[in-house]
Design a protein around this nucleic acid. Sequence first.
DNA 1: CTGAAAGCGCTTACAG
DNA 2: CTGAAAGCGCTTACAG
Lengths: 341, 341
Amino acid sequence: MTFTGAARPTMLDVAISAGVSRSTVSRVLQGRGRFSRESHFRVLRAVQELGFVPNILASELASPSSSVIGLLLRDASNPAYAALFVELARAAHEHQLPLISMTVHHDEGGGQQIVALRRMLGMRVAGLVVATGDVTSEQLEPFRASLPILRAGRPATNSLLNAISYDEVNNATLIAEYLLAAGHRRVVVILPTATLSYPEHVRGTTMIEVLGAGGCAVHVVAVTDTNDQGATHAADLVARYGATAVMATTDRRQMAVMRELGARGLSVPGDVSVTGLDGLMAGLDLLGLTTVRLPVEALAQRAMSVMSQLISGAGSGLIQEKLCGQLIPGSTVASPAAHRS
Amino acid sequence: MTFTGAARPTMLDVAISAGVSRSTVSRVLQGRGRFSRESHFRVLRAVQELGFVPNILASELASPSSSVIGLLLRDASNPAYAALFVELARAAHEHQLPLISMTVHHDEGGGQQIVALRRMLGMRVAGLVVATGDVTSEQLEPFRASLPILRAGRPATNSLLNAISYDEVNNATLIAEYLLAAGHRRVVVILPTATLSYPEHVRGTTMIEVLGAGGCAVHVVAVTDTNDQGATHAADLVARYGATAVMATTDRRQMAVMRELGARGLSVPGDVSVTGLDGLMAGLDLLGLTTVRLPVEALAQRAMSVMSQLISGAGSGLIQEKLCGQLIPGSTVASPAAHRS
DNA sequence: CTGAAAGCGCTTACAG
DNA sequence: CTGAAAGCGCTTACAG
C-alpha cells in the first residue's frame, strides 16, 4: 500500500502558487465577489496543479450556512427501508439537495442511535430526514428548534415533528376488506409486537379489527422475535382451525407462509389464501403476490420537497401527512367457497 | 413550523455555564487528560442543561485525525447495489467504523460523480470505499496517496487501486457450463454494452465464450438502453432460431424474459430454459430462478476488514481480490431433449 | 489539575 | 479588483 497520508494542499498553498491572497482564491473558487481574469486563471491553474480539494469541514465551519442534508436510515435489510433509501436519494438528487446518509442498526441497546444522531447534528447538516423508528421523537425534540427535522415513512406518534408517512391503517384496511370481499370468514393474522416493528403492529391490529368488524373469526400469531416470520405458527393455526386465509404484515412474511404451506403440501390459493403488504419486490407479478403497494416514490418526493422548503425558510406550520398505498390483487387469494366444499 | 434557526450552544457556553475553561470542557468530553471529579460533574451537567452537541466539523478540523469512512455508492435502483449497500453498512458497523454514504447517480453527464467525490474528500474522511463504476479510477488516482481508497464490487480495470470485487468471469462460467451440461446447444444471450454496465458486459461476453467453446450456437441480443431489459428481442430470437434457452446477465432481465415468454404463451422451462445472475431477490426460491448468487456479504465483510487495516496504517501492498459466487440451480432450466422432440 | 494561546482551513466584511 | 484581519468551534501542547 502506497498510502502515505500525504498532507493535502490547503488554500494557502494555492494562494502562494498563484501569487495571490487566500481571499482571492476563495472568491475565485466560489465565483462570488470581484476578481480579475488574470487572478481567475492563475488560481484555477494552481488548483489544477496542486490537486487542491477544499476542506468542506473548514468551509462549512467558517461560512454561516451549511447546505447538505442528513438522512438517518434504518438498517435496510428490511426491503421497505431499502426501497425508501433508493427513492429518497433519488428525490434529494432531483431537488438538488446534497444528501449524506448514516445507517442506524436496529438491534442496538439504544446508544448507537444517539451516536448517529449526534454525529449528524455534529456535522451541522442543514436539515435532517429521519427514516427509522429507532430514533425516538423524544430524542429528536430538543433539536427541532435549531434545524428542520422530518420523519419519513413511519406513522407519527407525536404531534411536534414534521412527518410524511404511510397510511398504514388505510393500507391494512384495503387488503383486509379485499379478503372479506372474497368471502373469507376464518383468517389467521400474523401480528408482530409494537417494539419489534411499530408499522407492522399497526397493520396487524388494523387487519384484526377490520376482519372482526366484518364478521370474521380471527386467529392471531404473535411474533416477538426478529428472526421469526410467523409462518410455522400460522400454518399450525390453519391446520388446527381450518382457516381459509393467512394475512401477513409484510410480503416477506407472506412468502415465508407460502414456503411453509408448500412444505406441508398445501396449495395457494387452492387450499389457503395468503396476503402480504409492501408491494416492493421485483418479481411480485411473477409470484402473483396479493398485497398493497407502499407509495415509496411519492413519499420520497414529498419528503424532499418539504425539506427543500423547510431549509429555505418557507416554513408553513407543522407538516404531517399520510400517503395511501394501492391494492394489488394477485393470484394468492381465491374465494374459499371454491375449494372448501 | 417553529424552526427558529436558533444558535446552538458552543463549547464556550458550556465552559461558562460550568465555570471552567474550554480546555477543561474538551478534556472531560473526550475523557482524556486530567480533570477533577468536580469539573467532570459540572461540565456534564452544563452539557445536559444546554443540550450541547459538539460540532464535529470543528473537532475534526482541529484534531489531527478523522475517524469516519466515506462510501460512494451507485444509485441503488439496481438490486445488486442495494444489497451491497446494506451489507457494507452492516460490515462497517461490525468493524466499528462510522460510515457516511453518498449516492452517485448513473445517468449523469459526468460532473456529478466528481462533485460527490470531492465532497467526500472535502469531509476529510479517513478512508473511501467506492462502490460504483461511475467514478473512474483515473478520477481516484490523484488521491490515493492521501487516503486509503478501496473499490468494492466492481472488477478492477486498473492495477493501482485496492479492490475487492466479484469474480464475474467465474460466475458467468459457472452458469454457462450448467446450461451446457443440461444439454442446450442453441442459446440466446442478452449482452449489455460495456458503457451501460461493465460487470454485465463481462458476464455476457464470458457466457458467449463458454457456450461457444462448448459447441453451442449463440445468438446475441445487444442491449444499449437502460430501460431495455432485452426480453422482447430475446423472445424474438428464440422464435426465429428455435433456441432452447435464454441467458440473462441479471435476475431482473431473467424475470423480464419470463414475463415476455409467458405473454407469448411459452412455458418455462417447458418450452424454453432461462438463467439470470445475482441471486439476491427475496422470493428467488419461490420463483425457482436459476442463477448465481453474488457473495455480497463476504465482499462487504472483506472490504471493511481491509479498510479497517488500511486506515490503521497496517498497509500491506496493493490488495486486489475477486470473490466467487455460488450456482443456484432452479426450476427454470430443464434439458432441451425433454421437450424438443 | 487547569487555563491562555496558538492553530486547524476556510469565509467574510472592511479598508484600500 | 485585492489583501490583512478576525472569526467559525474545536484541540492540543505548554506553562503554571
